[in-house]
Design a binder for these strands. Sequence first.
DNA 1: CGTGTGACTAGGA
DNA 2: ATCCTAGCCACAC
Length: 112
Amino acid sequence: MNTKDFYLRVYEVVKQIPYGRATSYGAIAKVLGTPRSSRTVGYAMNAAHNNPDVPAHRVVNRNGVLTGKHHFAGTNLMQQLLESEGLVIEEDQIKNFKDIYWDPVEELGFQV
DNA sequence: CGTGTGACTAGGA
DNA sequence: ATCCTAGCCACAC
């Protein structure tokens, strides 16, 4: 599999994250069979700006921290998008992240 | 081809 | 709980 295909698979998973939920880079790498590292998933998000269908704001790191917020327009767009979906953000971190966490491995149970 | 960087993570102190 | 380290891999020089 080449890198571009991997990116596309990442997008297919991210598109299936339900409204008001969020997941982590590592979880996405896992459901894809980790042919690459979780860093590469983040890199895929960086390249996802050409794909408006990809809700990149629903992907955070394993602690629920909005590590990618600086890659969005403005300084708090990512936080605003999440808050508009009913999430609570404090100090760049999602409150009750464990409750809203969406595990693609469990919820999908298959490889994209 | 080597090096540095980063939307990461798991494990140890 | 926090801090540090090693491993990770695509990309830009």
